[in-house]
């Protein structure tokens, strides 16, 4: 049996990935996460002195806190198993990446374990986030200087 034959057999045996179902699940649960976030947005606007421009910070902080709590309790993993990208894409996924890495490194001690592992995943998120923000701002600056759009 050569490689090609093996590949053929493998393709036959592997069950097909339910793309549509996965996308639908991710959409619904991701949407639910965002709906909860929006509920917090309105909560902060109505009961505290936040406007639509300033409300983003406390909302993100609350969502991150809740996701961190759920990760610690082991509930977030179960939700993520069903939802996939639906729980990874919102800011809660970032929180999950930080907290789960911190928990994982706990056995190796606080400095070399928790401290160095915490941003293993999140570090790349921060790096590429900052880098892409820089390029987006650069493109916008060029467009504004050319007079295509306004700030």
């Amino acid at each position: 049996m050569d490689q090609q034959q093996y590949q053929q057999i493998e393709d036959q045996i592997t069950p097909p990935t339910p793309y549509v179902k996965n996308v639908l699940k991710a959409f619904l649960i991701g949407g639910l996460v965002c709906t909860i976030g929006h509920a917090f947005t309105y909560f902060y606007i109505i009961f505290f002195n936040f406007t639509e421009t300033t409300v983003g910070n406390p909302t993100a902080a609350t969502m991150v806190f809740i996701a961190a709590l759920l990760t610690g309790l082991g509930i977030y993993r179960k939700i993520a198993q069903v939802a996939g990208a639906g729980t990874a894409v919102p800011v809660t996924g970032f929180s999950n990446a930080v907290v789960s890495a911190a928990i994982e490194g706990k056995t190796e001690g606080f400095v070399l374990g928790v401290g160095s592992n915490m941003f293993k995943m999140a570090g790349s998120v921060i790096l590429f986030g900052v880098a892409s923000a820089f390029f987006v701002a650069l493109i916008k600056l060029i467009l504004v200087t050319m007079g295509v759009v306004e700030w």
């Binding site: 309105y42 606007i45 109505i46 002195n49 936040f50 406007t51 639509e52 421009t53 409300v55």
Partner: peptide, 12 residues
């Protein structure tokens, strides 16, 4: 002295 805003906070 006019201020127009489309912010939900101000509307509320």
């Amino acid at each position: 002295e006019v201020l127009v805003s489309a912010d939900y906070k101000l509307y509320w």
